[in-house]
Design a protein around this nucleic acid. Structure first.
Length: 771
DNA sequence: TATTCCCCGCCAGGGT
C-alpha cells in the first residue's frame, strides 16, 4: 500500500497547490471497502503528508470511531477523511455536511474492484454522484487490482458523462507470479473425489516446516478449523505458533492474529479469503492454496499475499484435494499467463438501493423529483432509469406503494410544495441505522463464561446443539454450557468434537474463464498433449477416461450413459460451474420426462451433472438442439425449479435494503426466522396487491441471476447446442463420472460411511484399471 | 433452502 500512497498523495497535493490558496476544510476523501484497511491507510497517509511537508490532518471515520468523536468531526473537519461507503452515506444524511464540502477537491476509491459488481458499489456510485453535484470540479480516482473489464470499471467509477475523458494509469513494474503444485506421488492412489484434502496433511506440514512463515488458504470456514486441528495433531510442538483466521471469528481474535502475523512470530495461519485483502504482510514467505481456487483472479490475488514488495515475485503452491483439480490448476496457470482475468460486471438498476438513496437524500434536505433524477442518472447503474421507474420509487418511499399505503411507517418521504423530504424523527433514526447493502444470516455469538468473545456460529447450527456438546471454533475445542440472549456460552473441553460448525456461504462456482481454460486443457489432453506438470501427473487418469469412454474436444459434448447398482445414470460434462449445472440438470430432467414420464435424482459438481433413474432415459428421442434449445427456457426453468420460492427467499435482501424490514441494532440482530417470516409476509402482500411491483420483479430477476447464473446458463445452452454430442456407454464409472456418483451417494450416507464407500469403490476401479 | 460453499458494513445525543 505504501508503494501507492506516496505518489497519489503527492499528485493530489500538487493539484491542490495549482488551485491556488489552500483553504481550510476537507480536501481529500478516501473510501475503502474494508474497516481493517482504514486504520493503516490513515497512518500511511499521515506519514506521507509529513514527508511531503503538507500539514494535513488525516482522520478515520468508520464504526470504530466513537459517537462523540464523530460529532466533533462534523464540526471540525480534517483535511483528509478515510471512510467506508456506508459511513460516507451516513455522512450524506447530515444537512451541515454539504457546506463542509466546498473545499473538497479529490475522492480516492481504494480497492474499487472489490466494490464493483456489488450493491455496495452502486451505493458508492450514488454517493459519488452526490459529491460531484456538490463540487462540480471534483476529481475521482480509483485504485483497482487487475480485472477483465478495466474500461467498464473506470466508466462505472466516474459516471457515463465523464468516462470518455477519464484515463487508466498502469504500473510499469511487472509483477512475477509463480504457481506450482504439490503433486501426489502416485496419482492412482490419490482420491478421485472429495474436497477436504486430508491425504495431503503430511506434505503440507513439510512445506510449512521449510519456510519461515506460511498462509494456508482453504475454501471454507469449517475447512480451516479441520485443517488447523490436523496440522496441530501432526506437530503439537507448533502450539502457539499456529493460528486460524476466518470471517466468523470475533474481531478481537482476528486482530490478535493479524498483529502476530505482522510481528512475524507465527509459523502459519490457516485462513479463508478473510486474509485475501487487508493488512499487508511483507513478511509472508509462502502461500499455500488447499483445493480449487475457482477463478484466475482469486489465484493471483492469493499468490500476491507473498512477496508483497516491488521486484519480488509472488509464489503460490497449490494443494489438490482430488485428481481433477490438477487440471484446473494447469488451466488456471496458462490462463494467467495469457492475462485472462475474470471481469466483475456492474449491477444494473438495483431499485432497492435507489429506494434507500431516495430516503437518504430526503433526510439531508429536500429535493425536487427532476433534480434528484438527473443526479441519479449520472451514475452508470441508473443511466437508463425510466421516468416510470423513478415515479414508482418515489411513490414507494412516499406511501409504501400500492400494498403498504395503509401503514404510516412506510410513508417515509413527505411531498410538500413540490419538494420531497423526511420529517419524522423516528424514520431518520431507523434509516441511519439500516444504511448499507450487506445482508447476512442471523448468527449466535460464541463466548466463554468468563466473557471473552470467540466468534459466531449460524443460528441453525446452534439450535441443534445440546448443553455438553463439543464443537470446534477458533481452533479450540469448546463445550456448550447454555444459550441465552443470542449468545452461546462455552468452556474449554477435552476429547473429540461431536460437531464441526458449518456456515452457509455463497456457493462459488468455477468462473467462466477458468471453466473455458479447463475445457481447453482437456481437449489438448485428448490430442495427446500434456503441457503442464499437473497434466503429466494426472495423465494416467485421463488416459483411463479415454480408454473407458472419451475425452471431448472443444467442439464436442461428452455424454455418458451407464448402469450402476441397478440404476440408470446419464452424465453430461459441460464444465460450466455448479450453478449453471444446477439449472441445466433440472431443465434436462424436465425435457426428458416429457418424452417418457420418469423421475430423476440429480447430482451436480463444477464439471458436470448426473441424472439417475430406475428406467432408462429416452436420450435418443431428443436431438441435441431440442435438449438445449433456449426456446421456452424461462417457463421451463419456472416449471422445473421452484423459482417462486427462490424469488421469495431472495426477497429478504431486497426488503432489508429498501427499508421494509429492520434487523435491529448492530450486533443485536433479530433472529433469522423472524426476518424470513416478515419478508415472506411482505412478498405475499406484494404478490397479492401489487403483482407488478418493481421490487418483486427485481427479486425474480436477481434470484435467477445470483442463484442460477442465468446469463451464463443461456450462453452455455447456446454453446452446447452447437456442439457435436458424443454418447458413450462405459461399463464402469469413469474418472469424470466418479465424483458425481459420490456426490449422489452423499445424500444417503453419513460422512464416515461415505469415506469408506469411496475408498472401496476406488480400489475396485483400480483393480479394473490394472487389467 | 440446504448442508463442501468466500468476504465486506453499521445510530445519536446526553449523561458521567
Amino acid at each position: 500500500m505504501s508503494v501507492w500512497l506516496g505518489p497519489i498523495l503527492q499528485e493530489s497535493a500538487k493539484l491542490l497547490q495549482n488551485d491556488g490558496e489552500m483553504e481550510s476544510g476537507l480536501k481529500v476523501l478516501w473510501i475503502t471497502p474494508l474497516r481493517a484497511l482504514a486504520g493503516d491507510t490513515v497512518n500511511a497517509l499521515q506519514t506521507s503528508a509529513e514527508q511531503l511537508g503538507v500539514p494535513w490532518r488525516v482522520q478515520l471515520r468508520t464504526s470504530d470511531v466513537g459517537s462523540s468523536a464523530k460529532a466533533k468531526q462534523r464540526k471540525d473537519i480534517p483535511d483528509t477523511l478515510v471512510t467506508t461507503p456506508e459511513s460516507l452515506t451516513i455522512l450524506l444524511t447530515y444537512e451541515d455536511f454539504r457546506s463542509r464540502l466546498t473545499s473538497l477537491r479529490c475522492v480516492v476509491v481504494d480497492e474499487w474492484h472489490e466494490l464493483l459488481g456489488t450493491k455496495r458499489g452502486v451505493q458508492t456510485e450514488l454517493a459519488l454522484a452526490r459529491l460531484r453535484k456538490f463540487c462540480p470540479e471534483l476529481r475521482v480516482w480509483g485504485i483497482s487490482a487487475t480485472l477483465g473489464n478495466l474500461e467498464q470499471a473506470l466508466a462505472t467509477l466516474v459516471g457515463p458523462e465523464r468516462s470518455r475523458d477519464a484515463v487508466i494509469v498502469q504500473g510499469d513494474t511487472k509483477k512475477e507470479t509463480e504457481i506450482a503444485s504439490l503433486l501426489p506421488a502416485q496419482i492412482e492412489r490419490f482420491p478421485w473425489a472429495g474436497h477436504s484434502g486430508g491425504t495431503m496433511v503430511g506434505e503440507v506440514v513439510g512445506m510449512i516446516d521449510q519456510a519461515k512463515n506460511t498462509l494456508v488458504f482453504t475454501n471454507t470456514r469449517s475447512q480451516t478449523e479441520v485443517w488447523y486441528q490436523a496440522i496441530l495433531k501432526t506437530r503439537p510442538d507448533w502450539a502457539g505458533m499456529l493460528a486460524i483466521h476466518h470471517g466468523s471469528l470475533d474481531t478481537s481474535v482476528r486482530q490478535w492474529v493479524e498483529e502476530r502475523l505482522r510481528a512475524g512470530d507465527l509459523k502459519a495461519v490457516v485462513c479463508t479469503s478473510s486474509l485475501d485483502l487487508g493488512v499487508d504482510y511483507p513478511l509472508v514467505e509462502q502461500v499455500l492454496q488447499v483445493g480449487s481456487p475457482k477463478g484466475i483472479a482469486r489465484l493471483v490475488q492469493r499468490a500476491g499475499r507473498s512477496g508483497h514488495r516491488p521486484g519480488v515475485p509472488s509464489r503460490l503452491t497449490f494443494v489438490p484435494t482430488h485428481a481433477l483439480e490438477l487440471v484446473e490448476l494447469a488451466a488456471a496457470r496458462r490462463a494467467m499467463h495469457r492475462r485472462q482475468i475474470e471481469a466483475r460486471l456492474p449491477e444494473n438498476k438495483p431499485l432497492d438501493v435507489l429506494v434507500q438513496h431516495a430516503v437518504t437524500c430526503g433526510i439531508e434536505g429536500s429535493y425536487r423529483s427532476e433534480e434528484l433524477l438527473a443526479e441519479v442518472r449520472d451514475t452508470t447503474a441508473f443511466e437508463s432509469l425510466t421516468d416510470a421507474e423513478w415515479e414508482w420509487v418515489l411513490k414507494f418511499c412516499k406511501e409504501g406503494g400500492e400494498s403498504l399505503h395503509a401503514y404510516p411507517e412506510f410513508h417515509r418521504l413527505q411531498h410538500i410544495d413540490d419538494q420531497y423530504c423526511v420529517t419524522d424523527k423516528r424514520t431518520v433514526r431507523q434509516h441511519r441505522m439500516s444504511i448499507g447493502t450487506i445482508t447476512s444470516d442471523a448468527e449466535v455469538q460464541v463466548q466463554y463464561l468468563k466473557g471473552s468473545k470467540l466468534g459466531s456460529v449460524e443460528e441453525t447450527f446452534a439450535a441443534r446443539l445440546k448443553p455438553g456438546d463439543r464443537f470446534l471454533l477458533a481452533g479450540k475445542l469448546l463445550e456448550l454450557v447454555r444459550v441465552r440472549d443470542n449468545t452461546a456460552y462455552v468452556k474449554k473441553a477435552r476429547g473429540n468434537p461431536t460437531a464441526v460448525p458449518r456456515w452457509m456461504g455463497g456457493r462459488m462456482p468455477l468462473s467462466s474463464e477458468l471453466s473455458a481454460a479447463m475445457r481447453e486443457e482437456l481437449a489438448a489432453a485428448a490430442r495427446g498433449e500434456y503441457r503442464e506438470a499437473e497434466m503429466e501427473a494426472v495423465k494416467p487418469l485421463l488416459v483411463l477416461q479415454q480408454k473407458w469412454s472419451r475425452l471431448p474436444s472443444e467442439k464436442q459434448l461428452l455424454v455418458e450413459q451407464l448402469e450402476f447398482k441397478k440404476r440408470h445414470l446419464l452424465l453430461f460434462y459441460p464444465m460450466e460451474g455448479r450453478l449453471v449445472h444446477e439449472g441445466l440438470a433440472a431443465l434436462l430432467a424436465l425435457r426428458l420426462s416429457r418424452i417418457k414420464p420418469i423421475t430423476f435424482s440429480i447430482a451436480i459438481n463444477d464439471y458436470g451433472l448426473l441424472l439417475e433413474s430406475v428406467e432408462v432415459a429416452p436420450l435418443e428421442e431428443l436431438k441435441t438442439a431440442e435438449l438445449f434449445s433456449i426456446e421456452n427456457l424461462e417457463s421451463d426453468i419456472g416449471e422445473s425449479l421452484n423459482s417462486t420460492e427462490m424469488a421469495k427467499r431472495h426477497f429478504r435482501e431486497i426488503a432489508r435494503i429498501s427499508g421494509m424490514i429492520h434487523s435491529g441494532f448492530p450486533g443485536r440482530s433479530k433472529t433469522m426466522r423472524y426476518l424470513q417470516a416478515s419478508s415472506n409476509l411482505f412478498y405475499d402482500v406484494f404478490a397479492q396487491f401489487e403483482p407488478d411491483s418493481l421490487l418483486l420483479q427485481q427479486s425474480r430477476r436477481e434470484a435467477l441471476e445470483k442463484q442460477l447464473e442465468w446469463k451464463r446458463l443461456m450462453a452455455t445452452m447456446q454453446r452446447l447446442e452447437s456442439l457435436e454430442c458424443l454418447v458413450e456407454r462405459p461399463k464402469k464409472p469413469t474418472p469424470l463420472a466418479f465424483p458425481l456418483i459420490v456426490e449422489r451417494m452423499r445424500e444417503r450416507l453419513s460422512s464416515e460411511t461415505l469415506a469408506d464407500r469411496v475408498l472401496k469403490m476406488q480400489q475396485q476401479l483400480e483393480i479394473a484399471a490394472a487389467h
